[in-house]
Structure formats: C-alpha cells, structure tokens
C-alpha cells in the first residue's frame, strides 16, 4: 500500500463532539469524490464515528487524518485516528464483541473493525493509541 503523495485530504483536530460531526462529513465527502458507493460511505463513516468518539471519550482529544492510497491496481482511503490518551491495556480484549468500559457503548472498537476492509491498532499504556482503517474501492 502506498500513500499517495500530496494527497493528505483531511487533517482535523478532534476536541469535542462537534468535531466528530465535522470528521464524519469530511470523510464522507472524500469518499464520495473517490467514487465509493453510498453503502460503502455509510459503513465506513459509521466506523469513523465510533473511532472519533473513542478519542473524545478515552483521551479527551486527538487527531483524525485521511488520505487516498493506491495499491497496484486499486485505490482506497485510509483514515488514521491518533490520541495521546491512557492507551489500551489489552488490545485483543478491547476488540472482542461486547467489550465495554464504564463510559462507552461497548461496541465501538470491535464494531468499527467489522465495518471496514482493514483495521490496524497500536496502543501503548500511558502514551496513546493509533488506529488506522483502510477501505478499498471495488
């Protein structure tokens, strides 16, 4: 997978719930521009909503970036969610269906993973979390 140069389309600092809406709208617009179907847009933007909310709930603030990617014969979109929050103690467990923390809804992370083609998470306790999702244009 190759990041397309000069194609960083979205770079939003997420500090409150209003920003989550902004991120959703901008990523939807980017996907529409790339030719993704309404179904794909809805699915991926729902994942984006879950992941951007996680930033607010668990870290208070963070950043969402999105850009176009290419891989041999296909193009896609990658979205990166980074925060400098407390990190996740047990990532595998956090991805299990039904996993829930006190103040979240319990399907955020695992649910988001089910909603996109590729899902990657790195997390370090005390340092933060970085989630990358990628969706390919079919």
């Amino acid at each position: 997978m190759k990041k397309v140069s000069d194609s960083l389309k979205i770079n939003v600092e997420v500090m409150d719930q209003e920003d989550v809406i902004v991120v959703r709208q901008e990523i939807r617009q980017l996907m529409r521009g790339l030719g993704f179907s309404l179904m794909d847009q809805t699915r991926v933007v729902t994942a984006v909503s879950e992941l951007a909310r996680n930033i607010i709930v668990h870290a208070g603030q963070g950043r969402v970036e999105a850009y176009q990617v290419i891989d041999q014969h296909r193009i896609g979109i990658s979205c990166i969610f980074t925060d400098e929050g407390p990190g996740i103690h047990d990532v595998q467990k956090a991805l299990e269906p039904g996993f829930s923390t006190a103040n979240s809804m319990g399907i955020g992370l695992g649910g988001a993973k089910n909603l996109c083609n590729e899902f990657d998470i790195e997390s370090a306790l005390g340092k933060g979390t970085k989630v990358t999702i990628t969706e390919w244009l079919k």
């Binding site: 309404l38 179904m39 847009q41 809805t42 699915r43 729902t46 269906p97 399907i107 695992g110 649910g111 089910n114 909603l115």
Partner: peptide
C-alpha cells in the same frame, strides 16, 4: 431508516 443504515447496523452488531 435508510437501507444503507440498516445494513451498517447489522455489520455493527447492534
């Protein structure tokens, strides 16, 4: 409810 939203909710497992 839009069909895209319905399908997404199923994927999400809600």
């Amino acid at each position: 409810m839009r069909k895209e939203v319905v399908l997404t909710l199923l994927h999400l497992g809600l």
